[in-house]
Amino acid sequence: MGLGYQKTDRNAFDYDIWFDAGLPNLALRGPQSDLHADNRISFIGAAQTFGRFVHDPFPRQVGQFLERPIANLGFSGAGVEFYLQRPKLMALLATSDTVVVQSMSARSVSAGVFKTARNNGVLCFQSGPRKGESFMAQEAYRLLKIEYGEDALIEQRKTVQEKWVEQHRDLASQVPGRKVFLWLSNEAPGDNLDYGNSAIGKFPHMVSAEMVSELPDMGFEVIECILNPEPVQILVNDHSHVVERVFDQQNFPNRPDNLRALNVYYASPALHDKAARMLCKALL
């Protein structure tokens, strides 16, 4: 998870990965913090909460602005089920003053044809001709569309969307403190459901405005943080300050050459800054 990002991005970003004794094998975004501190704000989410490609992710900014302890519990590719399946993480959330839940993709949901695997955006087919095979989510959904048919794809989307809502309801029921849902995207809710170029749409994949509208009844305050258009982020070596081809030919052979030093997917520093400001305003 986070170690993978550190390995790929290390010439451009030092994520200061650390491990808590109570959460072995979970690589946490640094700097270190007291995960049990009183009055803390816990943040859960995927790579955006972890803060891939940013030096100062929004959880840390919020902690600094509000002078409150924070726990960054963001993990790459995480969905709500990642937390629900880990009692120690749920215990941390249950004892937090506030929990900020970043919008996580419905692609990270085990339901229907797919089960999440290794928690890094990989899905494993549970039935049909591809049963037992694992692919990155986008490719898995593409194969579903081509080999299982359009109807199967539509049914799969509906199934994971329902499960996504159910998992958020389950999460909310186990978190007694204040709950904030942070929509963090380049698209407004609904606009992300553009399946023209991808079978899963844009981030947060397959999460609709209707799904988000159900969250307040569960106890979530919803904050929509949208930055569109978002400037492309050029990745730079943090010591030499020259452009860094993070996505090199050896490890990313299929990535176009002109995108090797660009972040065109993960939340940019500008989006993190905006999210931090909006959260601070809400949490003050």
Binding site: R10, I17, W18, F19
Partner: peptide, 8 residues
């Protein structure tokens, strides 16, 4: 584990 993650 923290130190090894530096390599990583």
């Amino acid at each position: 584990a923290r130190l090894m993650a530096l390599i990583p």
